[in-house]
Design a protein around this nucleic acid. Structure first.
Lengths: 353, 353
DNA sequence: CTGTTAGCGCCTTCAT
DNA sequence: ATGAAGGCGCTAACAG
């Protein structure tokens, strides 16, 4: 078998307890003894047994991070930021208590979300961060709240990042003003003179989808256009949905002059579809995204969108999860979504009626 | 405290051993007893204590995945694929033995890479997957080999994904033909008639950088252009390096007609710089990327690049890590890099001398 | 400051 | 097919 604490203790001529104290450094140990222990550790190439110490100390160094899909930049950026808050020093000093992130891909499936929470509870995770929007289904909301309550009861810190507070559980929350973002985007288009807008929404029954749609409608109402044909098509948060959705919108209303996409990735699909149709952006149709992912500025034309401070939010969530930042009042921090007006939007060439 | 195996046993009127056997399902248990135990588990909301079972069984359900930066799509796609091989069924059935991935961001730092390996050894990880290229430094290579050997000795499976086999350790390896890819890209440009090429290489002393550069040179030599001014500038694998690097290349050789970027992200920066300089792509300067990340096809013009089957490779690595696929002969599987000729390359308007 | 003594919760022979 | 018992490696009181 491998080297254990006892081996190190024997080699250093001290008790196991002393070795443990040296390694964890939260207890006074004589300098002399200390270096003797450290030397023995070196010589024996001893590596702490994580499970054993987790069991004995009833704590763990694991932090769960739930994402829909880590290959989606939206989640990758947040997850990366969460992680950056617990990354070890480059020199590898002080590894004790070093937290490690377990990133779990739920694929947007509510069931899998619950499954992963169980798995994380099994690992006795120190904290759990749930990122991105969630499904709006009473049954799932309740199941989720129950699971999270069990986790909190077991001492696991729970933080929500990029989704609204969960009814039935008072987890710390870092969220985005999705409504405001969509409203600003819509206002921007209206102020340019657009009147025939198409909205490509995300999957139904998801918080982000609903909030963005609400912001869109709010802007329309304020402009006295509430009654206007609110052309809306739902789809997934991916490029293909953008492509198909744009074609569908054009089929329904060939005269539309602007399309608001559910997010930047979808917007890319929209742009591709418009190009394939021989329509120019923004001369014929203006396009907007959402999120301001890194590639948005490199799209041609550069994409008008709203910026979500994903990295800031993720980092904040990470700190809250590690209890290294005082929680915001009320437990909820909301990040503003700034309009990034770029080249994909312009006044319509044929003003509306 | 929380519910333990003993509690369940008491409730079900059986011994702890029996409960354990039911939960792990690798031992015959009477159907009657079995369901009684399962009911007790339900009623008590019992959740296995991971650390405790890991300690007792001397095995763990954790799998480490090392990446440079999870926010970089190159790594995110691979990591996601590795993970997909161990994701639980959506219905949450059969959670026992469910593996979980710990994704570690090394930031490209060799020290941190070693640190994370120690941390994973501490967790007694079932397997470790190292993704992406690595630093070519004898000291680090040796330190890495040593660390990996300790891991293997401790029973952890080690898989390399996206990097060449490591001298000094016979880890299973899934790698890409970076040389071939760069060669094909260069041949493509040469066949279009380009003679003044600029090469924007990645960071020095990294395997991917070197291999791609070698492929580039090989193509040049074969075309009898070995002596030609091989304009090369090194930079990081990010957009900013592409932007700055392109300007630097143009400064050194204003007449160049093509730029090969270290990867797609860098290529995006190159395109931005060229546009800002008023140069048209591909009429004035052709541009190529590497990797064929999702956004490459949406760039304008669509980026000519070579496709690395990142998802396939990641999935393969995942299966090898879980010992669910017979290893390739020799322990090394190499994936081909296909040329994706798109709109960012064309014959030079002013043919070379 | 350091050693001693109990567990932490589970798995796994070994009996039965 | 099930129960009993020991131990996995470490930490946390409690003495000294």
């Amino acid at each position: 078998m491998s080297v254990t604490l006892a081996d190190v203790a024997a080699r250093a001529g001290v008790s196991a307890a002393t070795v443990s104290r040296v390694l964890n450094g939260n207890y006074p140990v004589a300098g002399e003894t200390r270096s003797r222990v450290l030397r023995a550790v070196e010589e024996l190439e001893y590596v702490v047994n994580g499970p054993a110490s987790a069991l004995a100390a009833a704590t763990s160094d694991l932090v769960g991070v739930l994402v829909n899909d880590i290959a989606d930049p939206f989640f990758a950026v947040m997850a990366s930021a969460v992680q950056s808050e617990m990354s070890p020093a480059a020199d590898g000093s002080g590894l004790s208590g070093q937290k490690m992130a377990i990133i779990c891909n739920t694929g947007g499936s509510p069931e899998r979300e619950l499954t992963y929470l169980t798995l994380l509870q099994r690992q006795r995770a120190a904290a759990v961060v749930l990122t991105g929007g969630t499904v709006e289904d009473p049954a799932h909301t309740e199941a989720l709240a129950t699971r999270l309550r069990r986790l909190s009861d077991a001492g696991t810190r729970v933080v929500l990042c990029g989704r609204p507070p969960l009814p039935g559980h008072d987890a710390l929350t870092v969220t985005f003003d999705n409504r405001g973002g969509a409203r600003r985007l819509t206002e921007h288009l209206l102020s340019l003179g657009h009147r025939r807008l198409g909205y490509l929404a995300g999957p139904t029954a998801r918080t982000t989808t609903r909030h963005r749609l609400e912001g869109h409608h709010a802007a329309l109402s304020e402009a006295g256009l509430a009654g206007e044909a609110t052309l809306t098509v739902h789809g997934a948060y991916d490029r293909a949905s953008g492509y198909d959705g744009a074609l569908e919108l054009l089929r329904r209303e060939p005269r539309l002059t602007a399309i608001l996409a559910a997010n930047d990735t979808v917007a890319l699909g929209v742009c591709a579809a418009l190009r394939d149709r021989g329509l120019r952006i923004p001369q014929d149709v203006s396009v907007t995204g959402f999120d301001d992912l890194p590639f948005a500025v490199d799209a041609t034309p550069a994409l008008t969108t709203v910026r979500l401070p994903l990295a800031d939010a993720g980092a904040r969530a990470g700190r809250l999860a590690l209890d290294r930042e005082t929680p915001p009042v009320g437990g909820v921090a909301t990040y503003h979504a700034d309009l990034m007006a770029r080249a994909s939007t312009a006044p319509p060439s044929r003003p509306g009626p």
